[in-house]
């Protein structure tokens, strides 16, 4: 090794801050394509089940309450997900996405990993609408 290179490196390292970051006090910006937690947009879902079929780790369950009124529940098992994004590519309605910002996903309880998605806005009128049909 050349002596000059060594000195250069020494000089540079003497004034340089450590390369490591003080996480969690300092959080580096995530890359734009980071694959974090799965989000489901219930509006467009048609209940085709392709995402469930293609998921390599059985992390998604879809429960069809009523296909006509588009009432579905999606259970997402965060602890099984490998963040491969296959479900995002399989969904033709573009209702699935992997979040860029939600990636600190550790939890102390099992329950925190089982996430239930439902249609939020329409929930009350929809339930009301389906009740007479069921009766």
């Amino acid at each position: 090794m050349k002596f000059g290179t060594l000195l250069q490196d020494l000089a540079r390292s003497a004034v340089h801050n450590p390369i490591t970051e003080k996480y969690p006090f300092e959080v580096r910006a995530t890359p734009a394509r980071l694959r974090g937690r799965l989000n489901w947009d219930a509006e467009n879902c048609i209940g085709c089940g392709l995402c469930v079929k293609d998921c390599p780790s059985q992390a998604i369950e879809l429960i069809v309450i009523d296909k006509k009124t588009k009432q579905f529940q999606l259970f997402y098992h965060l602890n099984r997900c490998t963040f491969c994004a296959q479900c995002v590519y399989s969904c033709r309605q573009e209702c699935l996405s992997l979040s860029r910002d939600e990636w600190e996903l550790a939890a102390l309880n099992q329950e925190d990993f089982h996430i239930q998605y439902e249609r939020e806005v329409d929930e009350v009128p929809c339930v009301a609408a389906t009740d007479p049909a069921e009766a």
Partner: peptide
């Protein structure tokens, strides 16, 4: 035991 698509990730 897995489909063609699932095997890609395996």
């Amino acid at each position: 035991a897995r489909s063609w698509v699932q095997n890609l990730y395996l």
